[in-house]
Design a protein around this nucleic acid. Sequence first.
DNA 1: TTAGGGTTAG
Length: 617
Amino acid sequence: MKRLKKKPNLLTCNTLINGLIKFPSLHSIQLGKQVFYDSIKLGVIPQTTTFNIMILGCCLEGKFNEAISFIGKMKEFGCFPDNVSYNTILGFFCKKRRLKEAGDLLQDMKEKGLIPNRNTFNIVVSGYCKVGWLKEARKVIDMMVKNDVLPDVWTYNMLINGLCGEERIEEAVKLRDEMENLNVLPDVVTYNTLINGYFKCGGSSEGFRLVEEMRDKGVKMNAVTNNILVKWYCKEGKMDEASEKVRVMEESGILPDKVTYNTLINGYCKAGKLGEAFEMMEMMERKGFKMDTITLNTILHTLCKERKLKEASELLTSASNRGYLLDEVSYGTLLAGYLKDGTADKALKLWSEMKKKEIVPSIITYNTIIGGLCELGETEQAICKYNELLRSGLVPDSTTYNTIIHVYCKEGKVEKAFELHNKMVEKSLKPDVFACNILLSGLCSEGMLEKALKLFNTWISEGKIIDIVTHNTMISGLCKEGKLEDAFHLVSEMKERNLNPDHYTYSAILGALTSVGRTNEAEEFMSKMVEVENFQQPSLQIKEQNVKTSEMTEVYDSDSNACSEQIIELCNQGRYKDAMRIFEASNNKGITLNKSAYIVLMEGLIKRRKRLSKAVP
DNA sequence: TTAGGGTTAG
């Protein structure tokens, strides 16, 4: 049509653009945009729907500014943005937890005279739930009722998911009952959310009970249910059961999808079974699922875990040249690898590289860099990134707060630490036992024992969880101030709470006793300490044994070594097909290769995709 | 032909 200079019909254009944008292939979104501009040149007048499809495309690419600019462009063509235009962008902002930008957009929407509909409300509820602001989510639901927009099964499902995210599974189940009473029937998503929630909180038997329940109630399981179960088996290290589950599901007509394969690949990598992970990557492609960003990120993580940072960095570059989409997780993964390796300079360089590519870090990546820099003693740099995070409009989570509170305490800025703690509470984030321990240790090391005791007692009276570290922190604080009797008292309280004193407890007390010359008691404690150490000995031995066995698996026979070396050499020469032949032959002989060989095979599989020409459309 | 929930990577 373009060649014949014929003007296409608007519906044809919309359908074509929509198809391209939703078709998950490389550059198809850019192609969709090309069709949009070509159509205009051919005289087609786009309508709101056309713009909305373009907006979706921009959002899928993560180009939010461009998406917003389309809202402005509509006027030139005599049309106006509608709820769909705004809800699309709003949804993506919420998905990415960029609440500040979402709020600004909502304001703009209202100024344009558009009235939020049920979708708009539901998107806002999902945004609040994603960052754990459940009180705010509830407020939105109240507002919905006031505006005569009744919450539906989507609204409830999101709130249930929010509760599960906070590990408040009992309340989530209660909400499910509540919705049933209001005649909003739970669907497969409700069940999937709750099953996943139970698995997350360690309630696997309740999770499986819900699987039965949904069957009894006639709610059909789907691929997502399957994937949640497979994930659980993987997490438990039950890889045989995980793959058996996939086989059984397949027989019952629920076909594995991309998520299933990625879950299994990750499971095998985590279990150190790299050969099986590689086979699963091959299987995925054979079944017609292209490996994607998540597969790539899984392999990147495995490389980093194996401390093969050079390989990871090379894979990041070459995968990008081969058209894999890199995202902030890809960068965040390598970033974590560098930080763990102690190379802050490389991590910071990668951070700026990511920013230059306009890839926006999520809260997890911010937490990685902030925590990593703190660990390496680069406090100033860490605070700098924290400030950058606050400016970005992302919402800090409890990991962020705990990290910064820890830094403040370490620097003796206890007041600042408490300010942050209060802010955390304000944001309806519940300070956990980590936050408590950090604050207590900050107070004790600044000699503010009274305040520490007050916090400790408040914490207990509120029924919050405390652990051995909490007790040890207080005990050593008391010992440092010479309050030995109080320390003894706390040791017995600790035992009453079924927490066994460990060698930190005893050495704190021992130190205090010797420094005031109570040598007899000190000796008595010493023997107790030895008992504890002896008691710990067997578990230490088991650990050592484990280390040995895992090392043992690294010892391969000469056949294995020869094959592995040959494969690595062939891959290095770019002779992937020959390497595969050796792999298949050794597989048939039942030879297990060493990890490095599997890793080069995995890299090879990713790199097999043709290198893109430099002129990208 | 356009917008909202649950599953995979750190």
